[in-house]
Design a protein around this nucleic acid. Structure first.
Lengths: 370, 370
DNA sequence: ACATGGATTTGGAACTATCCAAAAACGTCT
DNA sequence: AGACGTTTTTGGATAGTTCCAAATCCATGT
């Protein structure tokens, strides 16, 4: 990739207006004290007005609010946090913000926090426990009121206990470390995988494979769900190819290995929609038609699923809602740190589209292209 | 969507361990003062150690660092910010964090800031100027050192002047309000559109349409680039269908209208890759083959482009790099608020794949197994 | 005129760091 | 031992809020 182009000097005329302005409204050094003087009341009264206390008389409140407007006062939350107990900030750690799933989740978090006057620090751990650790330390230094954590792979499970020892409320999201009780928001990934298998079985499939996953709770749960569902239906065939990661590329590779085996699966459950897209592409490249020659089902129900070719049947996991719920749970925990730990589980939802074809289609063996 | 399932009480046994711990390391009320006492030095000295001042003698430094470890002291950045001048925080506003383009951009921002010990507040404006405004006010209250802003649609252009009046360093990213000079990081969208047209012309196309866009600088620039390139090549046919938005759905709708006209275009430049995917899908549904019956070119080069069907030719805009550059520019501006305004422009890059049916088709082709 | 009591308002201490000018410690040289 | 120049260390002032106990206000009843 080429270097960026930078435009430093511009033309001489522009330079003047390109200097920082020296307007008299200089970066606000106007304080409570100034407002108090202007409104002829005490600092304390102004403080009460700012916090919308019912104690202060209407006339006084209005007078103070006038002064605030006139002088262009900006509340200093840092100073307030120093004396008071809360900062109205939260730390949020995800491991891959470029993944639209987490994008939606963060959008949900943001919406819920915004309503309550909170703002959030965001960090992208890139699945590195070291980066995650550094960020958490910074969050402590900034005295955030709580933490929303999607733990990085291979995080020391002791981390949550450490956090609670430090008195830092922490909600785990999607993934979790160690065992309950803890605060958690996510979906039931065992159930997700079970629903996928159930749907395929209901379409008549007997040889159902599972592809994709990584070494973390969300994958383990899916694998467990896959196997439990097969057990329940008394199906002997099972083929669990974990691969390395949850990307299109992984799906693309794994499906090819899988379809060269004999007997072939007639259906495949994918760790998520990205893996499923990769798998569908792989099938096409082998001359097989997804939905007819092999049923494909994804999980997450990302936006692309609906407009895929064929449209992908998927188990929706509602990341936006999970984000909202996680944020709300965090606020509850902050308000009541000693309270009972909670888990908020969003129920998954089956979205039937065309990538699993019809029962008749799916059972028929297609001769190999070679 | 169903309501989430919440597990409040759990069983009685678990309740005990589910209470917040009352460990003696209570949420750190250990201050500089305590460290000073423990190490038998003054507050000032401890402060110097914390800030890695070269003034303090080696023996003293080590003594103090021991005490810090022993007592489990956590630096209070809020208090430091009050007396000092910087908070080491930045505000970041995007309008759609669920869009993977912004996901990557935020990842780049995060990486660059993390290196310098900064953390960022993130907000998702959902393209609402009102939400954006509220967030910016909060950022002022939190005394962030600067702002990275992808302005929401229909933002009052006066906003940047206001920000500079307030003495708040602000870097605009991707989109911009009003006219230079200002600090900006993004790509040259005119050039992006021009490159797309140039590529199509080089393949022999004469009737080239453009679809998609919204009412903002990034769209205006693309439209200008499209028209300028046609002018340069002396092509009379021009068809600019703006539609409403930059989604798959828009691409899907617009291509259908377009292909029913006569004369039909032989190639279409899409506002971004999402629009392009929608367009390709639309073509297929009309019985037309993207790349053969109509060339399609996207912009952004999202990850999906490569694994699309057919793989999408696209102009890469490098969101991660733009994020990094924007963050670095912000840090420069904070260090030197009065300095010359800068624009950092990442050069776009043509990624040739198969959606334009180019002659070198075969070169990019993935070998089929049969 | 004065005690009563609820509604408002207030001043001083507290919170936890940094800044700065001045003091202390130390080593070296005469 | 004392003068001198560095290197380290220090105490007091300061930043902008909240908390809290006490002071003030004001209308009412006697």
């Amino acid at each position: 990739m080429k270097d960026p182009i930078t435009t430093p000097p511009a033309k001489a005329d522009a330079t003047v207006s390109s200097q920082a302005p020296s307007s008299q409204s200089a970066s606000s050094s106007i304080t409570l004290q100034d407002i108090a003087a202007h409104a002829k009341v005490s600092r304390s009264t102004v403080s009460l007005v700012l916090r919308e206390s019912p104690l202060v008389a209407k006339r006084t409140r209005e007078k103070v609010q006038d002064s605030i407007k006139t002088l262009g006062y900006v509340y200093n939350r840092g100073a307030a946090a120093m004396r008071g107990s809360r900062t109205a900030t939260l730390g949020v750690v995800v491991y891959d913000i470029a993944n639209p799933f987490f994008g939606s989740m963060v959008a949900g978090i943001d919406a819920a926090l915004h309503q309550e006057g909170y703002v959030s620090f965001l960090a992208n751990s890139e699945d590195s426990p070291k980066r995650q650790q550094r960020f958490i330390e910074r969050m402590r230094e900034h005295r955030v009121d709580g933490l929303l954590l999607c733990p990085a792979e291979h995080t020391d499970p002791n981390l949550i206990h450490q956090l609670t020892d430090w008195g830092m409320p922490c909600i785990q999201v999607m993934r979790y470390l160690d065992a309950p009780p803890f605060d958690y928001a996510g979906t039931d990934f065992r159930r997700v995988a079970e629903m996928a298998v159930n749907h395929l079985v209901s379409l008549g499939h007997q040889r159902i494979a599972f592809i994709g996953g990584a070494d973390h709770s969300v994958s383990h749960d899916r694998w467990l769900g896959y196997q439990a569902a097969l057990d329940r239906h008394g199906l002997a065939y099972r083929r669990l190819v974990r691969g390395n990661g949850v990307t299109r590329r992984v799906g693309h590779e794994l499906i090819k290995t899988l379809m060269q085996e004999s007997p072939r699966p007639t259906a495949v459950v994918c760790h998520n929609d990205l893996v499923a897209f990769g798998a569908m592409l792989g099938l096409r490249q082998m001359g097989l038609e997804p939905g007819r020659d092999c049923a494909v089902i994804g999980t997450d129900d990302v936006e692309e699923a609906e407009l895929g070719d064929p449209p992908l049947t998927s188990i929706a996991t509602h990341p936006y809602a999970i984000g909202e719920q996680a944020a709300r749970l965090a606020l509850r925990r902050i308000a009541n740190p000693g309270g009972e730990r909670e888990s908020v589980i969003m129920p998954p939802e089956l979205k039937i589209r065309r990538s699993c074809g019809s029962p008749d289609d799916a059972i028929v063996e297609t001769p190999r292209p070679d």
